[in-house]
Design a protein around this nucleic acid. Structure first.
Lengths: 300, 300
DNA sequence: ATCGCATGATGCCGATTGGGTATCAAAAGT
DNA sequence: ACTTTTGATACCCAATCGGCATCATGCGAT
């Protein structure tokens, strides 16, 4: 169907005037052009919208239905134009936010809720993704802001750290280390490890592996799980131990214990990251919001 | 503005493909024609919809907004065509009805069955969605009536309450409160909470948070689940407690108990909501039906 | 570092569409 | 019976849309 808004507007004018010449005058076209246009519309719809006789035009019941829909369509087109211009100026729109398991376990839910209350015109669309996936989506313009394990230090991108976390060991409550108040990292040298897949968790590995090497060993990863829930499941089954961060381990399933690692003072950073060349609209508002936050004690 | 549906359809194709040649193939036109058409649209709107470089097309935030509106417009145009043809042929049409977990657990199924028996010419199309999602779909013209947590009190919309429910606490049967016949809300001050995501369950939170604050605390939400099933799962694991409404908790999984909350007399309202400017056809019939119902004792 | 390829943009031109003018047929008003 | 008004039709022209040829640019492969 090739009808466009021009025909819809012509139809609405005729429907309201019930007089072709007056409608044509109102539209700024000649009456014959209007007559042909309405005939075109009726042909495309396969429905008579008006009953015409000499000196008399009446709208049909189907025409009445089409008139209501037509006004909706014209209103919507007008709103679309306004909204797109407002979005261009940052007043409305959506913000696509990526998050890792680490990010969602930390302050991010509170940040998003607070921002949403301040900017109700902006629709937030959180979507889960490991660090690498989020960076790909940012590069492809499918994400506005990511919350990833960082710092990333990538050209063309800006970052703002939002939390740091201590590393902890997690093991089954039947594990020999479970009774300990804390451990040294080297005590894990002979343990089997359960972790996320090496491709998805690459950024986490980039922090963990050097720490282990400094303690004199390479972690023996015998099981890879899809996500943290899977990691917990495997660890609670006695498949091995894992090293994660403290906030991810809030709300641990039963059968697991958390053990601080005394000699690892480094902390894992979750950072907000966005493209420098995408600083428009809702993204700019959110970045300004982030930069305006005070620094909570365990987040930066 | 001379943009017509042709440009809108071209724009949607580019927005979905993010590739001019593939979009042109899909539209059946040559790539240069599409390139010029999109430039015409951007000129008319005065807004860049895409950022293009060699081998790369990305949609702008404003483009994202226009994409949502564009899909609305095309849906509405298609619906207008269908409706005008149905009207021409004596048929009445379809009614797209949204519902939350709260709504479908209450009187809605009975209402829909009764209405369908009275209006066999109208096709009912129920679809699940949290309150926010339904409000978005209503705004986008993809829903005719929503059954949401209310009241919503939004300009341009009308509402009709259909049920109210008491709040109840749900906890694991091993929880220390599980033996109680009832509790005071303040007794939950030091409990961990499990709930739906803060973005999806915003409307429920808008009722719950003030009740908790009046009792002197802010609920400590430590886990967010995707839906009520996930909430029940996490609570039964001992992750925390939750506060929901009585009808949602009919048919609870094993391992959970419901505890009335004595000092919370407020009730959660499920309300039917529709756009004032969409009161035509099947929507008008259904609204008239709702308004004609007697008020059952626990549904307003 | 260089070359080839893919992509979106531009120029030119023909086909198609929209609208103006002239005019018609018919019916209502005088 | 005559005049006027209205929507429809015929003809023609201007504007617009889209195809083809080509260009400029940047990315990927070597």
């Amino acid at each position: 169907m090739r009808s466009d808004l021009r025909l819809v507007r012509y139809f609405v004018a005729v429907a309201e005037e019930l007089h072709f010449r007056r409608a044509a005058d109102r539209l700024g076209i000649a009456q014959p052009a209007l007559s042909r246009a309405i005939q075109t519309l009726e042909t495309e719809l396969g429905v008579a919208l008006f009953v015409r006789s000499n000196r008399n035009v009446q709208i049909t019941p189907a025409g009445q239905v089409f008139l209501e829909r037509s006004n909706e369509i014209l209103n919507l087109m007008h709103r679309a134009t306004e909204d797109v211009r407002n979005a261009h100026n940052g007043r409305v729109g959506t913000l696509r936010i990526g998050y890792t398991d680490f990010a969602i376990a930390g302050p991010l839910p509170t940040l998003l809720k607070d921002f949403q209350e301040r900017q109700r015109q902006i629709t937030l669309k959180p979507q889960h993704g490991v660090t690498l996936m989020q960076l790909n989506r940012l590069a492809e313009g499918q994400l506005d802001i990511g919350f990833v394990t960082g710092p990333v230090n990538k050209n063309g991108y800006e970052e703002h750290p939002v939390q740091t976390e201590a590393f902890v060991c997690v093991c089954a409550d039947s594990h020999r280390l479970a009774v300990r108040q804390s451990i040294q990292l080297a005590e894990l040298a002979n343990e089997d490890f359960v972790h996320g897949s090496s491709t998805d968790w690459q950024h986490f590995y980039d922090f963990l592996i050097p720490l282990c090497r400094r303690a004199g060993f390479t972690p023996r990863i015998v099981q890879e799980a899809f996500n943290t829930a899977g990691i917990f499941g495997l660890v609670s089954c006695g498949m091995g131990v894992t090293v994660l961060t403290e906030k991810v381990c809030c709300g641990l399933p039963p059968g697991l214990v958390i053990i601080p690692i005394e000699d690892v003072t480094e902390r894992l950073t979750t950072t907000a990251i966005w493209r420098r060349d995408h600083m428009v609209g809702p993204t700019r508002h959110f970045v300004e919001y982030l930069r305006g936050l005070p620094n909570p004690s365990s987040s930066i």
